[in-house]
Design a protein around this nucleic acid. Structure first.
Lengths: 118, 118
DNA sequence: TAGTCATATTCGCCGCGACGAATATGGCCG
DNA sequence: CGGCCATATTCGTCGCGGCGAATATGACTA
């Protein structure tokens, strides 16, 4: 459900500052909840709540790995997909977003290609 | 002021359903407040309030004509501009947005090229 | 200058959604 | 099976933002 019917819903979902930061990080690399928690310096329930919203909106997928849950962007095509892409690209012009993105990337690398499974 | 510093602010501004509808209409043609009022079937104060927000965000310009005020999109370049463009383009895939857009265009034509001044 | 038309603004209310704290779930390992 | 780890969920609260109704502004005309 909630296949993100309209562009309005997409925008409302994405316009939340914290959710946008999360998406920005996931655009750099797939991440665990704990990674996002650290990179964004947010309490864990906050991260989980927003991830749930993003998942319902089909902007994000999760795959459970051990006691962790790995989140990644959905690469969905269609008109919405292009919009999401445009939004994420536009974040590249802001220092703070670039900074968090590289923190995220670093995070994902630090743990090596070991858990980069399914 | 409020030169719409960040992409976050832009998204928050645009994610409001009524404001998005207004932008959608203005993407079709410059319009008077009363036009928007009719096309979108909204009370006048509502339209004015949202236009004020859009103006502060520099998404919209207004030029006073007689006892009317003509609103039109800002054609701003830069990274933000491309994002706005992408958003407006994405609306083309939804029937309701296309419908209102053509109503707006029709409106603007009906009054002829007479008041299409500055 | 009084009246009128289009638009702008104020005020008070209400609802949605984000948050913090606490708690629940659920899988592994000893 | 008990405990622990990462994550999910609930609950109550609170603030932001949109709305309707009423009113203000401001320009033009007679």
């Amino acid at each position: 459900m909630t296949t993100l019917a309209s562009a309005t819903e997409l925008l409302v979902t994405v316009a939340e500052p914290t959710r946008l930061r999360i998406l920005n990080c996931l655009a750099a690399a797939p991440l665990f909840v704990s990674d996002l928690q650290d990179v964004l310096a947010l309490p864990q329930p906050t991260v989980s709540r927003h991830l749930t919203v993003l998942k319902k909106a089909e902007l994000v997928r999760d795959t459970s790995v051990a006691p962790f849950v790995l989140y990644r962007l959905c690469r969905d095509p269609g008109p919405q997909g292009r919009l999401v892409k445009a939004i994420l690209e536009s974040l590249g012009s802001e220092t703070e977003f670039r900074r968090e993105r590289s923190l995220a990337l670093e995070r994902s690398r630090k743990r090596g290609a070991s858990e980069v499974k399914r």
